[in-house]
């Protein structure tokens, strides 16, 4: 496997707040990686650094490039989607596709159109006229039509109900993901996507608390549940 992202000792402060405090991690090619942490842990700052949207200290390489200096080249091979509420309400679906085609060299408008034809979304509709589920489908159309090596998703299903969240991830897995592509995503709904993830990075207070392949973590950790009766029995046994 080759590393898609190599981050060493990333550090970034906003005033007195350390958003990233020496975070180091590696993302290999062909993996689905969950960047997971509580609010304010540094997830979004890490994503912004990976995308070259914010400067940070430390060593950072994404697809062999430095996002701080080679952002234009990097963005040709990266697709980034923030949460699904970012599309403005006045935008027509056709305009969203035109915009994506204009800003991303690897956006295949025909592919997006094919996907949308399988839905109830009309090209003339404005985003504000679409249900939340339809907006999700529109986002999926935009994502699926970009031939990117790295897909970065920041809370992509925020505010969606369970049905649409599941549809989003199922479509992503079945229609988009392959071994040439890598997905890095943040979410608060860990339980829902843990079967989807191949790797996790837990981040807290700007530092990596745990990182590894899901399979390996399953072998490395054991959960022990002790009932009060069992605890009392062991305590009694330990007494002289």
């Amino acid at each position: 496997m080759t590393a898609v992202i190599e981050a060493r000792a990333l550090a970034k402060s906003y005033g007195a707040t350390r958003a990233l405090d020496g975070a180091s991690f590696t993302v290999e090619s062909g993996r689905i990686v969950g960047l997971i942490g509580p609010n304010g842990a540094g997830k979004t700052t890490a994503l912004r650094a990976i995308l070259g949207l914010t400067h940070c200290e430390g060593e950072l390489t994404v697809l062999g490039r430095d996002p701080r200096r080679q952002r234009d080249e990097l963005m040709r091979e990266v697709c980034f989607i923030a949460d699904v509420a970012v599309l403005p309400g006045w935008l027509r679906v056709s305009q969203a596709l035109e915009f994506a085609a204009g800003v991303h060299p690897r956006f295949d408008r025909a592919r997006a159109g094919d996907f949308l034809r399988r839905t109830d979304i009309r090209m003339k509709s404005r985003v504000r006229e679409l249900s939340k589920g339809m907006v999700t489908q529109l986002h999926l159309a935009l994502v699926l039509a970009v031939d990117a090596r790295l897909l970065v998703l920041d809370e992509p299903t925020l505010g969606l109900d369970l049905l649409y969240r599941r549809t989003f991830y199922d479509t992503l897995l079945n229609d988009y993901f392959n071994e040439q592509r890598t997905i890095l995503l943040t979410t608060h709904q860990v339980e829902e996507i843990e079967n989807l993830l191949t790797d996790v990075i837990f981040i807290d207070h700007g530092r990596v608390a745990l990182a590894g392949a899901v399979d390996a973590l399953g072998e490395r950790y054991v959960q022990l549940t002790v009932t009060p009766e069992q605890a009392a029995r062991e305590r009694a046994r330990a007494l002289p």
Binding site: D204, V208, A209, L210, G218, Y221, V222, Q223, L224
Partner: peptide
Amino acid sequence: LLAPLGEIRTPSIADLFVAKMQGGARPP
């Protein structure tokens, strides 16, 4: 070694996450 002490199982990612966050961040 742990089996005689109670019920053992492989933790879910969510369980591990909660445990790690409650235990504080440490280098891996």
